[in-house]
Write a protein that binds this DNA or RNA. Structure first.
Lengths: 214, 214
DNA sequence: CGGACAATTGATTATGCTCAATACTGGTGG
DNA sequence: CCACCAGTATTGAGCATAATCAATTGTCCG
């Protein structure tokens, strides 16, 4: 990981402490920005919490683990999304960079004092919507939901570039890699999408995809 | 539904408006309390939002519907829990009384100004935990999770009284009523629980139940 | 007591998982 | 430059879990 302000490089602790205890009318501080390479961990379950992150670029996966290794990806966070809220004094999930990422770092209280109450709500509504997907949709519908969500996040372009692996998608949708693969192949056979490569998918019939999830 | 203050009965609109526009140092208002009989609806998907509710007594189910009738119960809310936060200007789920309930009613802003930020977080963490249950646990584990959760809510008493039907539990856990029924029968056969009646369950081996979900 | 709803249990089916083999992709070094 | 390798993805075959369909049984009210 590398941490720097928007103005210049600085040691992490120095930059982080620069925002503490400032007076009301002080100039708005430059929040530190941290960069993570693909696959790098940002924090883990059980780690001391206190920082909240806003994604500037790239994609983050948030997940929980069961002791036997089963993994549930709770969310993929992309530009503008906020993650890192903790129930107690430790995080109860993992956060990792899916691809190369940069994130803005804030303290929890600092983040909440700003507009971030909205961010907590976004977290909540996303989680609730995902409960419906996981609890009551069949495999094909979950995959359609995922593609529609990805399309929306990438600004409505019909050609979507997936930063994550099939395993990430599977653990997000509560399925296996094989089922994801078969599902995407079926959508291609049925003419709803076209797989230019495994990670580059063109949506040919968005309305038909939407119809799958009603 | 019946609405009254803690002091005396009053017309709903009168009580609700009594809290609007009060001055800083006015005595703390008596928040209106609404009562709902078992099965009664508190609000529905698409209804104009604005009120937030704290459960005083009874159990509320929060759920979403797919157009073909599939239902996902997002949460059961019991004493002290807060529900009714909306993304936009309308609710995007249903809230119904499972059994006879009473709830304290607040406006969204009023609720958020108080200690209820904590309540939003509780909603979020509950939803995230439920994602893991729905996405990565098998039927038996989901049922064990549910029983453990119910036991905790009822203050650790080993005899738990369920206010909800098997259909409610099934739609909460993303299963069918038959699977719930078989799962509970199996737990009884294995000696982990005892079904005194369909809705009254004694937990005989809590540690064994916990071991099921690791 | 009767009726409606709720719950249980059984038989069969289907969806998605597991196990297995093969193909594709991007990066590294001979 | 190409061969190789590891990680990733696809596809197939058989199986297991939970859904569906169906038949009772139980319970709560009026």
């Amino acid at each position: 990981m590398s941490i720097h302000s928007s103005r210049e490089f600085a040691a992490p602790d120095k930059v982080l402490s620069a925002n503490v205890g400032r007076r009301e009318n002080a100039p708005r501080p430059v929040n530190p920005v941290a960069s993570f390479a693909a696959g790098e961990r940002i924090f883990e379950q059980g780690e001391r919490a206190g920082k909240v992150f806003t994604v500037k670029a790239g994609t983050i996966r948030i997940y929980q683990l069961l002791v036997d290794g089963r993994r549930q990806v709770l969310a993929f966070c992309t530009s503008g999304e906020v993650f890192g809220f903790a129930r107690r004094d430790t995080y109860d999930f993992f956060a990792e960079a899916v691809d190369d990422c940069s994130v803005i770092v804030r303290g929890t209280h600092e983040a909440l004092a700003e507009e971030s109450l909205k961010a907590v709500f976004e977290n909540l509504f996303a989680a609730q919507n995902h409960q419906l997907v996981l609890g009551r949709q069949v495999a094909g519908e979950r995959i359609a939901s995922f593609l529609i969500d990805m399309e929306k996040r990438q600004g409505g372009l019909h050609r979507i570039e997936l930063p994550m692996t099939r395993a990430d998608i599977a653990d997000y949708l509560g399925l296996t890699v094989e089922t994801i693969s078969r599902g995407l192949s079926k959508l291609q056979t049925d003419g709803l999408i076209r797989l230019h490569s495994a990670r580059s998918i063109e949506i040919l019939r968005l309305q038909a995809l939407r119809a799958m999830i009603e």
